[in-house]
Design a protein around this nucleic acid. Structure first.
Length: 981
DNA sequence: CTGGGCGCGGTTTTT
DNA sequence: CCGCGCCCAG
């Protein structure tokens, strides 16, 4: 039995699709068309998946059908094919947008699965990876290869087919963001790909000019967004319908893994005239410029009207990759060109396809002759003439024999097919009796003989990602920092000046020059993440086993190590367990209860105050507040009793021990701390500073501290940049070095960021090392929802459009520089601002990743590291990172600077820290910086109108570009309110 | 000791 | 607005 299968459609849950794309209508139209197997499409969408669950039932071998209760009875076409015979195959199209080999890639892939259980498993897996709720064709920042891996892991019976492989914007071989071969895209998993979808703008003959595609079957589908267009391109199978049968039939046709026990055979495809496709030729739609590849080449791929880049179409791209003069080669499945029946009728009747009379004739014809595809593909023209106007039969004859004239499509505009020239209809009607005597050739005679030609798969092309700048090149100042060993070294390293590179370079140098044994090196950071990065860089600079002998860790890990050393010497006991903040707070509450102490501000606030005392090495007795001192003493006793240490104790106790046991301290120093390097030195608190002083020699030799007082933003947790600034007083022989060559940001960004620091700046003026430049965009929006929309639209546009919709509406591509999602960061001062952003961006379809402090259990289900996404995080969390494009959201007075509730006035040092916070945020940006603020913002359920941050006024206007859509509207009465009152 | 209700306060974060 | 922390009742 021969049957038609349309394996790529979309539901009503995809963007820009008809409301009629529901299971009932799709089934009805499939029956009218004569499509036996229809893809569900969109199964990752939760609502569509639940409709699939409720309304379909399983039938033979992995296919589904609409339950009887939903079937409409009124379809009764000749040929015995109706809605009851329509089967669904589970599938979805995924839009993968990611960077590979240094370029932005946008690839659409079809995934087929054998049962609903697999669908559910895959959905829950993809749900964790990205946003599958806002679009039936979800966008994932996932490499096609990794998506394939996940698909096959979920069920090895699943398979993937790259979709419409030649379209310029979203396909595996597309000119804008594709690859030059299937292998480049899928790497080691390429053997699992056995079929490709040709898409409307190309046909098999074009594809067969590209030898590297010889081993793939070529399938054709409608990719329709409305039910009436089902099957406009379609596959023909022979045999039993079934999931496995279809998969194996396609696979056998691909000659990748021939299967003799085929239950079905892949016959071939029905095709559009490829010229009709939206991206057939090259051109520029806005200027109505269409051209073929030769002309495009002559004009240097630039529009002759406006000078912008032309959209390079499918023919051009095929020619680029072609290695064969002709695609008409034997041994491949055949195909037949066709035109939708309404189009054929409309041309015969000299009317529009949507016109009422055409639609009436269409349905009448189906009622008399049977399903559309049967009419188009295999029905005798005589039979058709018997029931319809001979002009319709003639129109169809012309379609079948390719006797048509076509205006090719380009740059998103469909091509147009013309069957009859001026006066031809009338002429034909005159000759009609003569022509009808000549029978057209049978369609089946076009079927090619199958060939057994084999070809080995091309070896995987190896392309390396752009390797990072060599680790061994240093500028003059960096070199001094790296090679000065006879004195303590203080390095003031501005943003983007190569801080970590310098620190690790120095360690490598010390070891290479024999100045230090790796075991005598201690490198201290604030976070485990930073420690890991230092360790990894060391491993890239020297043999791994040497690098591992260096001690790299956080201050707290160092404290632990010192305590262990003193334990071994019998000088310290207890502290078996280290409590996290929560546990410590519980113990504190317990201690207060036991002591019968009532705390006015609540135990949590008191606990924080005690923590600050510990970090500042203030003994309980010296506390100004007697209650505070007493609580502190009671707490420490209680901790001692429980053999517990809190995180502050990991700094405090080692300092006490080192101070009171100079001999042991000296021994420890000699053994392990000949070289002591401290990262982010501006963030040390007193306890950390003392720890370093006690570990270093009196004159500070071997001591190397690096940081940037302009980026000190942790004052609230006891850090004080005064320790950085007074380093030279404590170590008069210290060599002070400033790193000022900034390799990260454009000159404009640097200049503006430094203006924000105002006269607070400690660092010398940064010198930009980059040439490209663009102004800072300061955008004022009506509210937080429009702020989020602005951000997502800007990203969408800079990526080059994440959907066909935005591309076809012509708003994409202007800023396109090959960015991927991971190149963007959205930064904010308050998590509450981030919450609102996250919520609003959820519906945009752009993959976002919120980087939040993570509890251990959250860490377990952390983001798949393969996924690319836009980063959302606080400014604090962004320190030390960089992104090509940065948005600073919520830049309103009261938020940046953040003015806390009930604050009557703000201490100037706090205000300065807020200033530095904006400086840190701005200097994260490499290429582009957007600053957004909302005129109306709701925070803590309260709506506020806030002016933009007064810090923005510090920036020179010439560096900025202002966008304020509000300014054009009628001004509202200014109603300013306090944020938290 | 557990649960529900109420009232208030609300940055930033690492170990 | 929402979550917590505390208090009181059972």
């Amino acid at each position: 039995m021969e049957y038609f299968a349309d394996l790529h459609i979309h539901s009503k849950y995809s963007i820009a699709t008809s409301r009629d794309c529901n299971l009932v209508e799709l089934t009805r139209w499939a029956a009218l068309k004569g499509i036996r197997v229809l893809a569900t499409g969109d199964f990752t969408h939760p609502q569509w998946a639940s409709e699939i669950d409720e309304m379909l039932e399983e039938t033979e071998d992995g296919l589904l059908r609409l339950k009887d209760q939903y079937i409409e009875e009124n379809i009764d076409l000749p040929g015995g094919f109706g809605p009851r015979e329509v089967r669904f195959i589970l599938n979805v199209e995924i839009s993968s947008i990611y960077k590979k080999y240094g370029s932005a890639r946008r690839v659409h892939n079809l995934i087929f699965v054998p049962d609903r259980e697999t669908m559910r498993r895959l959905n829950s897996r993809l749900d964790r990876i990205g946003n599958i709720r806002s679009d039936g064709r979800p966008i994932l920042g996932l490499d096609s290869r990794d998506l394939l891996e996940i698909t096959l892991e979920t069920n090895s019976e699943s398979f993937m087919v790259p979709a419409h492989i030649w379209t310029p914007w979203f396909s595996v071989l597309g000119s804008k963001s594709g690859f030059d071969s299937i292998e480049e895209c899928f790497g080691d998993l390429t053997p699992h790909i056995f079929a490709l979808e040709t898409g409307l703008s190309s046909d098999p003959e074009m594809n067969r000019r590209v030898g590297s595609l010889d081993d793939y079957a070529l399938i054709s589908n409608s990719d329709t967004h409305s039910p009436s267009k089902l099957g406009r391109e379609v596959n023909i199978f022979d045999g039993k319908p079934g999931y496995r049968a279809i998969r194996e039939a396609i696979r056998s046709s691909a000659r990748r893994a021939a299967n003799d026990a085929d239950e079905a055979r892949f016959i071939g495809t029905l095709e559009f005239f490829p010229e009709e496709g939206k991206y057939h030729l090259d051109g520029h739609r806005k200027c109505s410029v269409r051209m073929d590849p030769q002309e495009t080449e002559k004009l240097g791929k630039v529009c002759p009207v406006c000078g912008h880049a032309l959209t390079v179409g499918v023919v051009n791209r095929v020619l680029e990759l072609a290695d064969s003069e002709s695609g008409n080669r034997p041994g491949f499945a055949p195909f037949w060109r066709m035109l939708p029946l309404v189009e054929v009728i409309a041309q015969a009747m000299d009317s529009r396809p949507q016109s009422k009379k055409v639609v009436t004739v269409y349905h009448e014809l189906l009622r008399q002759l049977g399903p559309e595809l049967t009419i188009l593909w295999s029905m005798d023209l005589d039979t058709i003439s018997g029931k319809a106007s001979p002009l319709i039969a003639e129109a169809l004859r012309r379609v079948r024999s390719g006797d048509v004239s076509i205006q090719p499509g380009f740059d998103g505009e469909y091509g147009t097919v013309t069957l009859f020239g001026a006066g031809e209809r009338e002429k034909f009607m005159g000759q009609e009796s003569f022509l009808s005597a000549q029978k057209p050739a049978s369609r089946r005679s076009m079927t090619n003989k199958s060939s057994t030609k084999k070809k080995t798969i091309k070896t995987e092309k190896t392309v390396k990602e752009n390797s990072q700048k060599s680790e061994v090149e240093f500028n003059d100042q960096q070199m001094v920092a790296i090679t000065t060993f006879d004195r303590p070294v203080l390095v003031q390293a501005g943003p983007g000046t190569g801080k970590t590179r310098t620190l690790t370079g120095r360690i490598a140098r010390a070891i290479a020059a024999g100045t230090a044994e790796p075991e005598q090196i201690i490198a201290v950071t604030f976070t485990r993440k930073a420690a890991k990065e230092v360790q990894e860089r060391l491993e890239s600079l020297m043999p791994a086993e040497t690098a591992q002998k260096c001690w790299v860790g956080t201050f707290h890990q160092l404290g632990r190590r010192i305590l262990d050393h003193f334990s071994k010497e019998g000088l310290f006991e207890g502290g078996q367990s280290v409590l996290d903040k929560h546990q410590a707070l519980d113990l504190f509450r317990q201690a207060m209860k036991a002591a019968g102490m009532k705390i006015p501000g609540g135990p949590s606030a008191m606990f924080d105050r005690i923590s600050l005392l510990k970090q500042n090495l203030v003994p309980p007795g010296d506390s100004e507040d007697a209650d505070l001192g007493r609580a502190y003493s009671i707490f420490q006793e209680h901790m001692l009793l429980n053999g517990a240490l809190d995180l502050d104790d990991l700094l405090l106790r080692p300092v006490e021990l080192l101070k009171s046991n100079p001999g042991t301290a000296e021994a420890f120093r000699g053994l392990f701390a000949r070289h002591l390097l401290v990262d982010e030195f501006q963030d040390v608190n007193r306890a950390q500073y003392e720890m370093i002083r006690l570990l270093a020699t009196t004159d500070g030799s071997g001591l190397f501290v690096i940081g940037d007082p302009d980026q000190a933003i942790y004052g609230f947790r006891g850090a004080d940049r005064k320790f950085f600034l007074r380093f030279h007083d404590d170590y008069p022989s210290a060599c002070r070095i400033g790193l000022v060559k900034n390799y990260r940001s454009t000159g404009t960004i640097l200049k503006a960021a430094q203006q924000v620091l105002n006269d607070q700046r400690e660092c010398e003026e940064l010198i930009p090392q980059r040439s490209a430049d663009s102004s800072i965009k300061i955008v004022r929006l009506p509210n937080q929802a429009t702020e989020a929309e602005f951000i997502s639209r800007t990203i969408d546009s800079a990526i080059g459009g994440v959907s066909f919709f935005s591309l076809d509406s012509g708003r994409a591509g202007a800023l396109h520089k090959g960015y991927g999602f991971r190149d963007f960061a959205v930064l904010f001062r308050l998590n509450a601002v981030g919450d609102a952003l996250e919520e609003a961006l959820e519906s945009s379809g752009i993959p976002f990743q919120r980087t939040k402090r993570q509890s251990p259990e959250e860490e377990a289900e952390a983001f798949d590291p393969r996924v690319e996404a836009v980063t959302l995080m606080t400014i604090h969390a962004a320190k030390g990172l960089e992104f090509p494009v940065v948005f600073i959201a919520g830049c309103e007075e009261g938020i940046i600077p953040h003015i806390p509730a009930h604050a009557s006035s703000m201490p100037s040092q706090d205000m300065d820290e807020e200033r530095r916070l904006l400086y840190v945020a701005m200097t994260r940006a490499a290429d582009e910086l957007f600053v957004t603020c909302a005129a109306l913002r709701s925070l803590h359920g309260r709506s506020c109108e806030l002016p933009q941050s007064h810090f923005l006024a510090e920036m020179d206007k010439s560096l900025c570009e202002f966008q304020d859509p509000l300014a054009k509207r009628k001004p509202k009465a200014p109603r300013q309110c306090n944020l938290f009152s």
